[in-house]
Each structure stands twice: as structure tokens, then as C-alpha cells.
């Protein structure tokens, strides 16, 4: 096993300020964490806390104000725009999301060292009880992990079965709230926290 993490968020800080003159931060997200190996990570947190911003920074479509996002040792911001999804790919519901502010010509940048995405970010995948696709989606997440990929599933649970899905499939949880990202190794650790219970409301187990 190599020492290079599959994904490293190195001193990442994202700040949105109120305006050009008013430099007061309107939004802030700090995260410093390395993911050494393939696993399935569940991400939860209140609206506006920065779940999607976190995914965008990992996929290289949002530039951190400070720090670096490294995928398999490559700095996402130095990779050619069209090749960034070979390292980390971001899906919102069914579709790939990407929007780059292109600040330099692609040919001056590095090439991605992978032909198939290493990090898969699923932002609010549609788990619909009516259509029966849930089981296939969960098996697919497991297949990606067995192929040494890192899988993130971001869900804003609105029904108990969605929590059951996260509990069944995720091996680690991130709770994004109050400008920070907190790591929990077990579902029960996550759901015993008072802020998480408050967020889950009536769904809290």
C-alpha cells in the first residue's frame, strides 16, 4: 500500500465574503483530512453548511481560498480542466456537474494520471422507494469500493429509510456544520451527537 493518500484535503479553507468592501466572511468551511484507502463515506449536514462546496472543491470545480486538494498525489487545481473528472467526478442526482472558471490554457497544465475516476462524489442521489433502483445503486457503490475507489454519498435525509441506507453502506461519516467537517467512525457515534440529533429532528434514531 502506498503512503500517498487517495484523497488529501490539506489545510483547505473556503471563505465567501459579503462583498468587495465588506470583507466580513459570509460563509466559511475548514477541512483538513486525508483518506488513505477506498471506502464509502456518508456526508450529512444542514442546508448551506457547505456539503456541495466541499464536493466542488474535491472535484476541482471550486477553488479553495487556502490549502490544496490532492487526489492520488495530484493537485486538482493544476490538472487540465477536462481531465479533472478522471480523478474526481461529481454527480448531482443523475448528472455530472462541472463548471470551471478557466484561468489558464489547459495545455500548460498537468495531465491526470488515471483514465477512470478515483473519487466518486454522489450529491443527493435519488433514493426513491417506488422504483427499486436503490439496491442496484448500493451494490454499485460497493463495487466501486472493491475496485479501490473512494465513494462519497451526500444525503439530506428526509425519511427513515434514507438513514438506514447510510447506516448500511457507509464506513465513515462526515458531518458538515458550523464551518467545520467532523469525522465519525461509526453511525452510532454520529447519531448520538446532540447537534446531529437536532439536525435529524424526528428521524434521529
Amino acid at each position: 500500500m502506498s503512503d500517498t493518500p487517495l484523497l488529501a484535503l490539506e489545510g483547505v479553507n473556503k471563505v465567501y465574503r459579503r462583498g468587495l468592501l465588506d470583507r466580513e466572511p459570509a460563509f466559511q468551511l475548514r477541512v483538513d483530512r486525508a483518506f488513505m484507502q477506498s471506502e464509502i463515506v456518508g456526508v450529512m449536514g444542514p442546508n448551506g453548511a457547505g456539503k456541495t462546496t466541499l464536493f466542488e472543491m474535491i472535484a476541482g470545480s471550486n477553488v479553495p481560498s487556502e490549502g490544496r486538494v490532492m487526489v492520488a498525489g495530484q493537485d486538482m487545481q493544476r490538472i487540465r480542466y477536462l481531465q479533472r473528472d478522471r480523478l474526481a467526478i461529481h454527480y448531482h442526482q443523475s448528472y455530472q456537474v462541472r463548471q470551471f472558471r478557466k484561468t489558464r490554457p489547459s495545455f500548460t497544465m498537468e495531465q491526470a494520471a488515471s483514465a477512470y475516476p478515483l473519487v466518486h462524489l454522489f450529491d443527493e442521489p435519488q433514493f426513491n422507494t417506488q422504483d427499486g433502483y436503490i439496491g442496484f445503486m448500493l451494490d454499485f457503490f460497493r463495487k466501486l469500493r472493491s475496485e479501490k475507489r473512494l465513494v462519497f454519498i451526500c444525503l439530506h435525509p428526509t425519511a427513515t429509510f434514507q438513514l438506514s441506507i447510510l447506516k448500511e453502506i457507509c464506513e465513515r461519516f462526515l458531518f458538515v456544520s458550523g464551518g467545520t467537517v467532523t469525522n465519525y467512525a461509526h453511525f452510532d457515534d454520529l447519531t448520538s451527537q446532540s447537534d446531529v440529533r437536532q439536525y435529524l429532528g424526528v428521524l434521529a434514531p
Binding site: Q130, G132, I134, G135, F136
Partner: peptide, 14 residues
């Protein structure tokens, strides 16, 4: 085999 998936069974279709 696909239908035997517990989540598929649990869905309306199952």
C-alpha cells in the same frame, strides 16, 4: 438474480 436484491424486493416492485 436482480429481483432477489433485498432493496428491490422491499420496493413497490418487489
Amino acid at each position: 438474480a436482480l429481483k432477489a436484491n433485498p432493496w428491490v424486493e422491499a420496493s413497490n416492485l418487489g
